[in-house]
Design a protein around this nucleic acid. Structure first.
Lengths: 322, 322
DNA sequence: ATTGGCCTGGCAATCGTTTGCCATTCGTTG
DNA sequence: CAACGAATGGCAAACGATTGCCAGGCCAAT
């Protein structure tokens, strides 16, 4: 900027304003300065800008396990929207650890404008505390005072139960994910409510399981022991694991067991058999989270507290008549 | 730091050194300062540090399409290794565009210590040019002067051809990916060499196709027209797409067509039928790229120019006797 | 003609560290 | 005993922007 100032004869303060506060200087002044900037191939120094302005232009996105395809969509969505708004995206894998989340965010709080927590493992208190240190938006985790976008899988669960009941299933199992998982609890609640609305439906829960594919083996074995004819599984990853194990054990899907997953991740449509699942607008959730965060940053007023994104049941071949 | 200085009675310069250059100050001084730092809950300001030292502690990782599961492994690997070394990872999706790569890197060059390019679409010249602006490591892209880690799929291709030939296939097709893709060209070369070493093997190429799943439909149709009995496909994503379409068209895999993929991505083991593929140490590639980059940053001497990572053929159920 | 307010642009402090250079102390060696 | 070098700590100048405050010019309204 000093070079531009020398070249044009203006002061660096004017240069700064011309480049970042368009309205603050005369139009022709600005043009001169912009020309000079182009000519000198000027790129603003992010660090210096951040140091004096306090705004870093960086947003962290924390996922709990980057290997889980569910997050691919989230990351894609946040990336798009952040880029469009001129922000950079810092990606962190918290390895499913709440402490890691806190540690990372606390350490980086000065170098971030905000953070998006996809699937936080933190307690409400910890989250609320963190939200005072740094602007936060959560995904699939509803905490008072923290703006959040949630995927309304619970509502979809109703559809899934309808679907299974209409196929003649009366003995249903919910295969539970990690008990610390908020969506897992929400799904189980919804499942209970849905089952209750049909008088003659029996519902059981097995688990918790880890929500990763390998856990599917144990889950499938437990599932077989229940003698039920259909299940709804915490997420697709686990469901795919279950599918594999059921086949190993000689059960046919859906003839012997109907399986419904959640999320419709990459792979749900080409596994064997293709998975009936609750399709979630994952990428949109990422985009929406960014929108909320940006609103939080610019307006400083807390935006809509909670955005609910609808899901729908996608019927493929893992469910059938009892 | 000023607070620490006041509290302990040392100068800020001493505080700075105590905290970042362990050997430079007396041990007891350092302990005093560290105590004070802890007590004051001190967190260094990344921007300020970067501003004065020129080191940002941030490395960019560019992928060409974040939805491609191949990159999940890369990202995971880089993340691990970068974290361990105290670096933050800035993730960019270049959306398969070379201009985007250049634009991003050029803009961010001052705020990055280095960058890792997974699957660059840039020309050699452009890459070499970029490498003068910012320390660079490429993955699967070998350019003179730029350290690189390559996955030795070409060598694995030999194994794949062996495998197919031993199953009685004599009419082979290589299903090509994007022609700008460096690994694609390398794989085709290797395929030709491998086929040539067997006198009576016929080899054809079809494509190029995009390397995304939807392209599999067109690829499968073209494949059927060749009348060949086996193929090696540019990558697993495309191969999975092909599998789906072949089934739609009523062909059985492997009875009517044997299919070999490349990379062994997430999903290759549970698609239908499970895919025979060249297993690549993807995550390791990410880790290795970081190691090269860090070596480049600290030693300032160019490290090993090219690291080749071995692959092996994983036989599943998409290949069988002719 | 005076007053007041908007539009522009400049001055200089500030953001929080790092680091080159210098001064002091102290132990060692010839 | 002199001289020298290593170890340690302080001073102050960067690093490259942003921004609060001020001043001059100009125009319109009184």
């Amino acid at each position: 900027m000093k070079d531009i100032a020398n070249l044009t004869g203006y002061a660096t303060s004017t240069v700064s304003r011309a480049l970042s506060k368009p309205g603050r200087v005369n139009a022709v002044t600005r043009m001169h300065i912009e020309d000079a900037a182009r000519q000198l191939n000027y790129t603003p120094n992010t660090q210096a800008r951040a140091l004096s302005s306090g705004r870093t232009g960086t947003v962290a996105v924390l996922v709990s396990a980057i290997t889980n395809p569910f997050y691919f969509g989230i990351i894609r969505g946040t990336q798009q929207q952040l880029n469009a708004a001129g922000y950079a995206q810092l990606l962190f894998d918290t390895e499913d650890s709440g402490e890691m989340e806190v540690a990372m965010l606390h350490k980086m709080r000065r170098s971030l404008d905000g953070a998006i927590l996809a699937a936080s493992r933190l307690s409400e208190a910890a989250l609320a505390q963190l939200a005072t240190e740094i602007p936060l938006v959560t995904i699939n985790r509803n905490v008072p005072g923290v703006p959040s976008v949630a995927i309304d899988t619970p509502h979809g669960i109703g559809q899934a139960v309808e679907h299974l009941v209409s196929l003649g299933h009366r003995d249903l199992v919910y295969v539970s994910g990690p008990s610390v998982s908020w969506p897992n609890r929400a799904r189980w609640q919804a499942m209970r409510a849905a089952a209750a609305s049909h008088g003659d439906v029996r519902l059981r829960q097995i688990g918790p399981f880890s929500g990763e594919r390998p856990a599917g083996s144990a889950a499938a074995d437990a599932l077989i022991n229940t003698g039920a004819s259909a299940c709804v599984v915490f997420n697709d990853l686990l469901a795919i694991g279950i599918l594999g194990r059921l086949m190993e054990r000689g059960l046919r899907v859906p003839a012997d067991m109907s399986v419904v997953g959640c999320d419709d991740i990459f792979g749900a449509d080409f596994c064997h058999p293709p998975l009936t699942t609750l399709t979630a607008p994952i990428e949109q959730a990422g985009r929406m989270a960014v929108s909320l965060l940006l609103a939080l940053l610019t307006d400083k007023a807390v935006p809509r507290r909670l955005v609910l994104l609808p899901t729908h049941l996608t019927v493929r071949e893992s469910t059938g008549h009892r």
